[in-house]
Structures are given as C-alpha cells and as structure tokens.
Design a protein around this nucleic acid. Sequence first.
DNA 1: CCAGACATGTAACAGGTTACATGATTCG
DNA 2: CGAATCATGTAACCTGTTACATGTCTGG
Lengths: 209, 209
Amino acid sequence: MDEKEAPDATDRPSSVPGAASLTPVSYLVLGLVARHGTATPYDLKSFAAQSVGNFWSFPHAQLYKEPPRLAEAGLLAEEREEFGRRRRIFRITDAGRAALAEWLASGETALGELRAPGLLKLAFAELGRPADAVTLARGQAAAHRAQLASYEAFAALPADAMPWSLRRALELGLGYERLQVDFWEALVGDLAAGRIPPSPSAGPAPPGS
Amino acid sequence: MDEKEAPDATDRPSSVPGAASLTPVSYLVLGLVARHGTATPYDLKSFAAQSVGNFWSFPHAQLYKEPPRLAEAGLLAEEREEFGRRRRIFRITDAGRAALAEWLASGETALGELRAPGLLKLAFAELGRPADAVTLARGQAAAHRAQLASYEAFAALPADAMPWSLRRALELGLGYERLQVDFWEALVGDLAAGRIPPSPSAGPAPPGS
DNA sequence: CCAGACATGTAACAGGTTACATGATTCG
DNA sequence: CGAATCATGTAACCTGTTACATGTCTGG
C-alpha cells in the first residue's frame, strides 16, 4: 500500500545504509535474483530447489518473507504485475549488488558445524542396546545412499546445466554423502561382526607424526 | 524443594504424558545426565564441550534452560545443594530413561543437511571475481585444517578416554574434515592453475584408498 | 582482602519452522 | 465447470542465540 520513503536510516539502529546483518537466506535471495535478473518468490523457491536446495533446503515461507525485507533495506527493487496474479517481481539494485559482492569478497570463512542428528545419536549409542546401534547405522546408510543417488542424478546433467561454482559445490556434496555411506556401512559391518569396540586400526597414519 | 506432581497433562495440549517434542538439546542433556548419573548445568557445559561439542556446539544458555524444562516434563529430577552455590543437581528419572531409550531405539534417521556457509558462498562464486573464489578456498582450507588438527588431538587420547560410540562419531568427524581440506585445497590448485571450469576429470579415488 | 577467573543464571531478540488459508490455473 | 494442482501468502509458535548481569571461589 503506502510507500514508506524511509527518509534516512538513523532512526533504525540496525539498518545501516550499506548493509545490516544479512543472513544466509539473504544472500541466497540476492544471489539468485542477481543470477536470473528478476524473480518472484515462487521463482526463488524453484531456483533454490534446483541448485543449493540439494544440500540446504529453505522452506518457502522464508523465500516469501525475505525479499520484502531486502527491498526495505534497498537491496532489491520490487514491482507488481498489473494483471493476473499481480505477483511481486524483484530485481537487484546497485546496493544489493554491492552487498553481494562484499559478501563474496569477504574472507569471513565461518565453517559451520557437522550437526547431523544421526551422529549425535551415535555418540550416545553406548547407552542403548547394541541392536539399536545396528538399526541406526542401517537406517543412516540407507538414507545417505538415497541422498547420494539423488546427487548423482543431479551431477549427471550436462556440463552447461549449471555454473561451474555450483557444480563444484555439488562435488563436495557427493564426497560428503559417499563418506557417510561408507562410514555407516562400515559400522554395520563392525557391529555385525561383533567387534563393537572402536578403531578399526586401519589407521591411515597421515603425514606428520 | 517442592515437588510438582504434574497431576495430568490434559491442560497442556502439547505436553503428552509420554514424551512431548524433544529437541536435540533435550537428548543431549538426557544422555549426558544418564551417562554421568548426576549433573549440574555447568557440568553439562563441560561434558558437552569435551564430547559432542567438537562437532555440535551448544551455547551454555541452552544447557541452563533445558534441564528445568525436562524436569517439568518429568524426565529429570531436580534437587538443590543445601549450602554454597546451592546449585541445581539433576538426575534422570525412569521416564527420562524411557524417553532416551525410545529415542535410541527409534529408526527415525533424520539425516540433516550439509549447511556449510562456505559451500553456499561457493555456489555463487561465479557472480564474483575469480580472486574472491581463491580467497574463499584458501580460507576454508585453513579453517578446516585447524579443525582437523583439533580433532586429531582429541582422537589421540587413550582408548578408554571415551566410550566407543563417541570415538566412532569422532572418526566420522575426522573423515569429514579431511574431505573438506582436500576439497578446498584442490580447488585452490585448480583456480591457481587457471582451470576454473569444473570437473577436473581427475576421478574421485580419494587419497584414503 | 582484592582481583581475577570460574560459575550461574536470565531477558530480549531474531530467525526458522509449522501450520493455516486462500487465490489462480489447468485439464478432464 | 468442477476438481485437482500449482502458486502465494501470512500468522503464530518456538528455539537458538546474544548479551547482559551477577554470584562465588581461589590465590596472591
């Protein structure tokens, strides 16, 4: 409805002209809009699902909530369709491009954690029955096998189906799922063989010591 | 002090008698208390930091908030020290033990996502300058190298320093960090060599094999 | 006994997740 | 033209996070 001119940013302590605290979702949206020129929230949902959505899913509610926020911060420009769905079409602004570039250029390098629920459960598996550990390992192996298959199907797309950076990211995803599959399958084997105690002693003895 | 009998659960729509919606933190607390017999919130902080905290960090605020919640649900019993700090000591109840056992036995197998900020950034690296990608890859490689070193130090502890399940989980963490290090270092190499386009065609065959 | 570290909590905020609810389009 | 599906949004809840604030012990 009414357009707030947002005269200046001094009244809002958190919204500095350049860039406030932007979350991963913000950069996802900025990046997708920048890549495609324009996008509706629904487009974002599709784009995300087909690219990073493989290893980082975003509920659609966020993709409808975030663009307006970014528009209010001046990083996106919004326009309405005149007829039909009257959907919101977003386009990146110079400020948005700058924020995105700054993010890409910054060497912040937060490395996020391996928050796998299965891993947490495994860490406490000693408190349960051995059979439970087998169930867990089997289930994890199966689930990761499925995920791996999904990744492989995606990776089988022709070379020009995705930018090199995304493909590269996908490769890490592939390696990750392979690691998981191998890990859980090995665990299943060890548990079945009765050698519940750890350390397969197949130590790679890495360089160093 | 006063023991709340929690007469019934009908007044709270979300708190079913058996088990309500328990989060990963809940199970962490339940598991740690079960393992150690009793624990104060501060103990939990220490225990967590020394075990799963390596790959899943919990801010101490949560570890002070969660036990009372679990106590209210009847899964933990709380008692106060009489003198000194008068700290809260928690002990697991039969209901708590049951909830924990059920969790361990359930084959829910949620497999959580690979939400690595660096990976997200990489997926959009094509929008930035090539030099930015190098910076990113270098930074990630260094950060993961540090993390790997930390894991290795932890893994070097004597065999009886931790239960087998935790050690096993740690091994996955090690593999994960190695994967990350290899991945980012390879990326640095490819970028430096000018072969920015993807698929090095150097088949997987990771160094471990 | 003072300083510093260790320990213990709580309040406020922000973000994600779930759920609800409805609008538009297509196809049989 | 009705039903199913696709598309679009919003509201409430809840949890994780950040920040603050203070209390208690130990050692010099």
